[in-house]
């Protein structure tokens, strides 16, 4: 008696008769469940960094960390305190909240000045991101940036 020809599929039987495909699927599902449980635990624990809305002192500290070589002449904090802009000549330093931290980029003043708020939101299109800022009125640029 000869051995049966190998199966044309990738399904192979292990010693316990469970196919490798099935074992991998079980492992994958188990991992997904474990990940979900750990993420749920992290959410429940509420141990993210405290990130209160930005105020002037908080913004200055953030600017000193992220843009130590710049000396902004004017700053603007978004209505919800989750983002800020700081002007340094023709450059604008952009900060916005992501999770429990802030992301920093810079852009040209002309790009900021040309943006238009819509329904209380201002979207800035940057090279690799498009942060949205809360604004209080239709006036843009805000008076903080008036020269």
């Amino acid at each position: 008696m000869t051995d049966p020809p190998p199966s044309p599929t990738l399904v192979k039987k292990g010693e316990d008769g469970v196919s490798l495909e099935k074992a991998l699927l079980i492992q994958l599902l188990g991992s997904a469940v474990a990940i979900s449980a750990l993420v749920g635990l992290a959410a429940w624990a509420r141990i993210a960094r405290p990130t209160p809305p930005l105020d002037t002192a908080g913004l200055n500290a953030l600017l000193a960390e992220e843009f130590p070589d710049h000396r902004p002449s004017a700053v603007w904090i978004s209505a919800d305190g989750a983002g800020a802009l700081a002007r340094d000549g023709d450059d604008v330093l952009v900060l916005w909240r992501r999770g429990d931290g802030y992301v920093a980029r810079d852009t040209r003043w002309s790009a900021v000045a040309a943006a238009t708020p819509q329904q209380g939101k201002l979207k800035l299109v940057l090279a690799d991101a498009a942060p949205v800022f809360s604004v209080t009125g239709p006036l843009w640029p805000p008076q903080e940036f008036a020269v």
Partner: peptide, 26 residues
């Protein structure tokens, strides 16, 4: 996570950050 929650160890976990890390591992 438990020790950080109890204030016994220094650790910060942000939910989406944690999800990204674990999904990257898988």
């Amino acid at each position: 996570i438990a020790l950080a929650r109890l204030g016994k160890a220094k650790a910060n976990y942000e939910t989406r950050d944690t999800a990204t890390s674990l999904a990257m591992g898988l």
